[in-house]
């Protein structure tokens, strides 16, 4: 997109020069109005394209390696400047203290209001988190709107995705901490997004809000909020959080309808995910989680009848 914008800007600039020369050489006598209108269009395209490139180049930062587009600061950056007050808006500070507490600009319903149930309150919190963290780039339905992106997604899947927006790595690509001065970003599917910052509670609230935007009803949101993380549920939940953004019902590569495999086969495959497809990260969980996910996948590919009998 940035490359295309750069080409448009370059071509429009050239066109502007040519049109201007044409206007000057013909002494305004030939098609003056048409040429002037074309010059205006070329000028707008040249400027628009250049602005697009400028925006695109610096994402996800607004000040390179210092401040993200949503004004969240890298911790390493705060050491580089003289400051009288400790910076309350670094990744570490917000992860520890919470985003909603750090911001004066929130509009939440009254906690003591009896008519506001848990789901409504969580959705409201999520909406505020969205406004603070996401709305510098995203709208709900307009430019870079999120509603189509989260259509039909569950709270667990969204929570997992939010946790992987961007991770701190060192030059060799090994995970590191945010306060490492040489920290670099590895982002979810190469998107130029800053990391989610805030507490786990706030991440969950944002996921609830996004799921709500994506069409999830109050019952689904309430059951996701209440957790229900029994041992039986471990595989499904782990899959939801870590795999379903690509492999879920709404994703490009769903499991439902695939040829059935046994749990042992899936267990083997989960051990070598990057070998199967370089787009996939290595399995991030424990051995228990790996077994649980394998069982869940075996049930998924066996179809609804088999799933019932497996329970």
């Amino acid at each position: 997109m940035v490359r295309a914008a750069a080409q448009v800007s370059l071509l429009a600039s050239l066109a502007l020069v040519v049109i201007t020369l044409a206007i000057v050489l013909t002494r305004h006598l030939v098609m003056a109005r048409t040429l002037a209108s074309l010059a205006m269009v070329a000028g707008l395209l040249a400027f628009g394209g250049a602005e697009w490139v400028r925006e695109g180049l610096r994402k996800p930062y607004v000040i390179g390696r210092v401040m993200f587009v949503n004004a969240v600061r890298m911790p390493a950056a705060s050491g580089a400047r003289p400051t009288a007050v400790p910076d309350a808006f670094t990744v570490d500070a917000l992860n520890a203290g919470g985003l909603l507490k750090a911001s004066a600009w929130t509009r939440l319903p009254d906690v003591d209001d009896a008519t506001v149930d848990e789901v409504t309150y969580a959705t409201a919190e999520g909406r505020e988190v969205f406004k603070i963290l996401c709305s510098s780039c995203h709208t709900v339905d307009g430019h870079l709107g999120v509603r189509p992106l989260v259509q039909g997604r569950g709270v667990d899947a969204l929570t997992g995705m939010l946790g992987r927006l961007a991770d701190p790595v060192d030059a060799a690509g090994v995970p590191t901490s945010w306060s490492n001065p040489a920290v670099q970003l590895t982002t979810w599917r190469g998107r130029r997004m800053p990391p989610f910052v805030g507490t786990d509670h706030e991440k969950r609230a944002l996921a609830v809000y996004l799921a709500h935007l994506g069409g999830a009803g109050p019952e689904a949101l309430a059951s996701a909020l209440s957790g229900g993380a029994g041992v039986d549920d471990l595989g499904r939940r782990f899959f939801e959080e870590n795999c379903s953004m690509c492999h879920g019902d709404g994703g490009g590569w769903p499991f439902a309808g695939r040829p059935p495999r046994s749990a042992d086969e899936f267990y083997e495959m989960l051990g070598k995910l990057p070998e199967l497809n370089e787009m996939m990260p290595a399995f991030p969980g424990s051995d228990t989680e790996r077994r649980a996910v394998a069982a869940h996948l075996a049930a998924l590919t066996a179809g609804p009848d088999a799933k019932e009998s497996a329970r």
Partner: peptide
């Protein structure tokens, strides 16, 4: 007080 925090912090950028 709350309203003090409503003056945003300076950006990490020198004048």
């Amino acid at each position: 007080p709350l309203w003090l925090t409503s003056i945003p912090q300076p950006d990490p950028l020198p004048q």
